[in-house]
């Protein structure tokens, strides 16, 4: 294995892009929710529900687009439950988020065994998948052409969505309201922002994104349905939000880093090493922990860079702070 080979690193980056796409969707979604002050630990559950329903819809309709839309809607619906329980019924956000993950995992497993042809399992079915669309001329550029311009539709969509979301949060008026609601809901309320409506909107939006992340797994990265398809990616996305200090652009680099670990793992397995596969498979999880330690070690940095002040706290208008 030649470490200094450009072609090798280009292939690693190429896999990192494919593996990272679902993480970026989930992380951007969670940034929306957390910026509005709602901690949603249900990302894993929303992703896996998006993955199973998206795949089932694409399989039965034969149309990937219908699959993508279905997965997004179902992800949003899962988030809506979290909204109702935490924002309206004022329940604990941590427990409710865990409940989304647990219910999502159970429901997805249940649906996965029923949504095939006539109530048969989905496992093992081969459905339509998102195809790579090479952009003429640009995909022929040496090395980076394949990495950047030979992707599927959902990855291309991120090229537009991520900068747009970053601009929206930082530079627009609704983005300012969003940040205000997450930093200081009392002040936002006085400003005339409807805190409840705002939190509902962005948390559901976050669910839609998480659902899309799940769909990308079952329609593109690992086409088809298996019960462990998300494999903790939802939780890695939650960690990624902290790593990215609530910034969509930085989340892309984090996702590429995690995707890159996946890629190196594949490459090492392909060339055959003495390191057991199980140990290589642990890398993304261990990396998540290491990255979190490094980030939280510089706590001052984290505060300055965008952790919303009211994250995880319910807003009750009558209560004084």
């Amino acid at each position: 294995m030649q470490i200094v080979d450009i072609a090798f690193w280009a292939s690693v980056l190429s896999i990192a892009m494919a593996a990272g796409t679902s993480l970026v969707y989930a992380a951007v979604g969670e940034i929306f929710a957390e910026k509005s002050g709602v901690l949603n630990l249900g990302v894993e559950g929303m992703m896996i529900m998006g993955a199973v329903t998206g795949f089932a819809a694409a399989y039965h309709s034969g149309n990937v687009l219908i699959g993508v839309v279905t997965g997004g809607i179902v992800g949003g619906f899962m988030a809506l439950i979290h909204c109702f329980v935490t924002i309206t019924l004022l329940a604990d956000q941590v427990v409710s988020g865990l409940a989304v993950t647990l219910l999502g995992g159970g429901l997805a497993s249940f649906l996965g065994q029923r949504l095939g042809v006539d109530g048969t399992p989905l496992v093992g079915l081969i459905g339509p998948r998102l195809l790579e669309i090479p952009i003429p001329y640009m995909s022929d550029i040496a090395y980076i052409g394949d990495v950047l311009f030979n992707r599927d539709m959902m990855t291309y969509l991120l090229y537009i969505v991520v900068p747009l979301v970053a601009f929206y949060i930082r530079r627009t008026r609704p983005g300012l309201f969003l940040r205000a609601v997450g930093e200081n809901p009392q002040a936002a309320d006085v400003m005339g922002v409807d805190v409840v409506k705002c939190r509902y909107f962005y948390t559901v939006m976050g669910g839609v994104f998480a659902g899309l992340g799940g769909v990308h797994l079952s329609l593109s990265y690992t086409p088809g349905w298996t019960e462990s398809i998300t494999g903790g990616r939802g939780w890695i996305a939650v960690a990624l939000v902290i790593f990215a200090t609530w910034d969509p652009i930085r989340s892309v680099f984090g996702a590429l880093l995690f995707g890159g670990v996946n890629a190196i793992q594949f490459r090492m397995q392909a060339v055959g090493t003495n390191v057991p596969a199980a140990l290589l498979n642990m890398l993304p999880y261990l990396l998540t922990i290491v990255v979190l330690v490094i980030i939280t070690y510089f706590e001052g940095l984290r505060k300055k860079l965008g952790a919303p002040d009211a994250l995880g706290l319910p807003y009750i208008r009558e209560e004084r702070v």
Binding site: V85, A91, L98, A99, L103, G106, S109, Q113
Partner: peptide
């Protein structure tokens, strides 16, 4: 039938009990 019905029920129970707390408080 899928045995994961059990997990659906468990997850749902946590949700409803969590939401139900509201009516206690």
């Amino acid at each position: 039938l899928p045995s994961s019905v059990a997990y659906v029920l468990q997850g749902a129970m946590l949700f409803f009990v969590l939401g139900g707390e509201f009516f206690v408080r």
